[in-house]
Nucleic acid binder design. Sequence first.
RNA 1: GCCGCCGUAGCUCAGUGGUAGAGCGCAUCCUUGGUAAGGCUGAGGUCCGGAGUUCAAUCCUCCGCGGCGGCACCA
Length: 853
Amino acid sequence: MVRYNPKEVEPRWRAAWDEAEVFRAETGSPKPKYYVLEMFPYPSGSLHVGHARNYAMGDVVARFKRARGFNVLHPMGWDAFGLPAENAAAERGVDPAAWTWDNIARMREELKRLGLSIDWTRELATCDPAYYGHQQAWFLELLERGLVYRKEGLVNWDPVDMTVLANEQVIDGRGWRSGAVVERRKLTQWFLRITDYAEELLQGLAGLDRWPDKVRLMQENWIGKSQGLRLTFRFAGDGPAEGLCVYTTRPDTLYGASFLAVAPDHPLADSLAAADPAVAAFVAQVRKGGTSEAEIESAEKLGWDTGLRVLHPFDKTREIPVWIANFVLMDYGTGAIFGCPAHDQRDLDFARKYDLRVTPVVLPSGEDPILFHVKHEAYVGPGRIYNSEFLDGLEIEEAKAAAVARAEADGIGEGATVYRLRDWGVARQRGWGCPIPVIHCQTCGVVPTPPEQLPVRLPEGLDFSKPGNPLARHPTWKHAVCPACGGQAERETDTLDTFVDSSWYFARFPDPAAAMPIDAAAADYWLPVDQYIGGVEHAVLHLLYARFVTRALADEGMLTVREPFAGLFTQGMVTHETYRRQSGEWVEPGVVDIRSEGATRRAVITATGEPVQIGEAEKMSKSKRNVVAPADIADVYGVDAARLFVLSDSPPERDVQWTSTGVEGAWRLINRIWAEFDEGVTGAAGEIDDSATRELRRATHKAIKAVTESIEGFRFNSAVARLYEFVAAVRNARAAAVSPAARREALGVLARLVAPFAPHLAEECWRTLGESGLIALASWPQWEQALVEDDERLLPVQINGKRRGEVRAPAGASSEEVEKLVFGNAEIVQRLEGLTVRKVIVVTDRIVNVVAG
RNA sequence: GCCGCCGUAGCUCAGUGGUAGAGCGCAUCCUUGGUAAGGCUGAGGUCCGGAGUUCAAUCCUCCGCGGCGGCACCA
C-alpha cells in the first residue's frame, strides 16, 4: 500500500503541465473553440476558498471541454485598479502600484497552486499601461462618436474623502469607507451614453437563453422600459409660454388629474426660486433630505403650491394647480407629472395631505359608479373608464390608446417610451485608476490626447496621505500643452470608474499583446465567451456595462459580436460558521476546536480551552475573521480535496458552507479512489464471474453518462455524488472475480471522470494504471447505450395511491403483461381481498396503481 | 411597496406527478498489520401550514406563514 501524498504528487503534476504547455490556447485551431472565463479577481493579496470555488467551477468546465475535443481558452487577469490600493497607500504610505503588483505576484502563485488549467501566457492587469492605454484609445473613439459626453449632474459626494461615489459605494446614505453622510452635489461629470443602447440591451436579453432568468429579469427591471404619453399643458394666465411637459404611463386617467407637480430641481422650480426666496427655501429644505433607505421610506411627501395654473388638455374649462413636490424625480421622464390621486398611491398620499381633489376615473367591475370611492388606498386594478368624457366605457388599455391618439391629433403630445436606465457616470476623483485622456484648454476647450501620446500614464510618487484626488494635487502632472493650439493647458485629473476596466477585458484576452485594443481576427475567433462564471452581485452593473461596451466597440468596428457572454453562470458564496468569545471578539476557525457531545456541538479555543459561541454561517469576511484560505487546506489535504469539497456539498448556484468535516469527507473520497488504483487491476482469484463483471461494466457506463450530463448541466455537486457511488461500485466489485479488462475499464473511466475535479489525483491514478500520456490531454470516455439501460424494472404497485408491493417486469413491458404480473402476485392479491378492482393504471417502466373499493 | 428565490433527517443540502435520498453528526459493532485510520450495521422525516387539480401531490395551482436577495417615490 502506497499512501497518497498530495504534498508530493500535486506540485509534480503541475510542473508536468507547465512543461508540456497543455493549457495553451491556440487561436485559429481547426477544433471547435470554447472560451470559458471566470470574472477576474481584484488582487487583494490573498485568496480565499470563495475564489477557489469560482475558479474550480470554470476549471471543471475547461478541463471537461478540452477532453471533449474543444480548443479551450481559459485565461486569467487582474481587476487591479481601485480603492483598496489607495487605502493601503493612505494608511501605510506604500506605493499603490507596488502594493498591487506584489499582491498580484502572491495571488498568482496561490491560484497556480490550485492546479487550474489556465493559459497564463495571456495574463493581463488593468493597472498596466499596456492595458489601460488601449482603454484610453477606445475611450477617445467613443468621445469622437458622441458616446462620451460631459454634463452637470447630481452625484453622490463624499465630503470626507472628497470624491464622487458610485451608488453601490453609498451604504445607508454614508460613504462606505469614510462613514460620512453623502451629499447630493451638482458636478460636471463624464458620462457614457449607455441609454442610446437601452432598447437593444433590453431586446438582447431575450436571446441570452443560457443566462439565469433571475439575472435577465434584474437587467430588465434595471433598464425599466415604460410606454406612455408625453403631454404639454398650457398655462392659464401666468407661466412660461411653452407650457409644462409631463410624462405619464396612465394617459387613461387624465380626467382624474387634480394637480401637476415638478421636481424641486426642475427648471420651472429653479426660475420660481430665483424670484421668490420662500420657494428657494422650500427647495433647499427638500433637497437636504437624506438618501438612506429609512429616510426615503419614511420621507413625508412635501409640496409647494406655485400658484400657477394649467388648463386641462381635453377640457379647457378646468384649471389644475401646479406644485413643486419632493417625490418627483428630475432625471426620469420630464421631471414633471400630473397627479391622479384616485389611481396612484403616491399622488393619493400627496392629495390627502394637501387636500386636493380625488376623482376616480377607473371603475372596478361590479362597483356602483355612484357609491365607489377612493379613501386611503389608490385603486390600481383593472376596470372601465368613467367620469372621463370621450374615454367613458373603455377598458384601460383602450383608453390609453385613445388618449394618446387624441393628444397627438391635437398636437399637444405624443406617445413616448421612457427608460429607467441612466447614462453611466464614469469619472472618479481618484489617483489609482485609468486617467481620462483629455486635455482642457482655455481656448480650445476639451481636446483629446493625440493617439501617439497614449498611454497617458499615471505619475509615480502620488501623495495619498490627504483626502481628495492626488492627481489634481500633483505638482507637475496635469500641466500639458494643448494639442490643438499649442498653448498652456491642463490634463483631466479624473480617472475612470473601474467598471470601465472590466467592461472589455474579455475581448483583450484573445490577443493580449495586440497593438490595437482588440485584435479583430483573434476576437472574432474566440468571442463570445461561451461560459462566463461569477458572482450574482454583478448581475446588473458589470454585466450590463460589458454588454453595452461590447456594442459600442462593435459599432466602432472593433468587434463583430454584440453580445459578449453567450452563457452565464452565477455561483453562490462560500460561507463559514463564525466564532465569538464572551468578550464579543471574533475568533478565526483555525484556533477553534469543535467538540461533539452527543447531538450538540461546542467550541473552545484549542490553546486555552476557553469556550466560544458558535454563530451562523456567514459570508467569509475579514471583519468576522471567518476566512479560510485554500493554502491552509492544501497544506493538510492537498488542493484536490479543497476543489472537490467546494463543488460537492451544494448546487453551484447556491451558497456552500465550508466545514472542516466536509473537507475531510472529500479527503476520504480521494483516498478511497487512490486505494482502488493502488490495488491494481487484478481481481479476486478464481473463475471469472460474468454477472459481477457485467454489473461493473454497467456501473461504469452509467457513471460516464451521469457525470457527463451533470457537468453539462452545471450540477457539479451531483457529478461528485455520482463519483462517490461509482467508487463504491468499483470497490464492491473487488470482492468478486471480475474480469481484469472490466476492472481496467472501470479504473480508466474513474480517473478520467475525476480529472476535472481533482486533476492531480487523476494524473497520478492514470500513470499508476500504466498510461504514458497526461490525463489532461486524454479524451473523455463514451458510454455504451446498451449498458446504461436496465432490461428489468422494479415497479412499485400502489393500491388507491398507497404503495402496497412491487413486481419485477421486463423493461418496456405492456400494460397487459404488467397487469398479469400484478394479479399473479400473492401479496397484492391478498391486499385486494374483498375489494372490487375498478381501474388499473400502468405507467410503463415506472409504477402501477390499482384503484379498488 | 414591487419583483424573484428558498422552506425535505440533528446540521448542510440533493431529488422526484408514482419505493423519500447523500455528506457530516449520532448510536452499535468489527478491525488495530491499509492506522495522520478504515469498515459493517442502525436510529432518525406531519418533505413549512391550508385548500384545490389528479387514480396518485413533497413535486402542479391558489391562499397563508417564515427566511433570503434585487429594485425602490421611476409617474
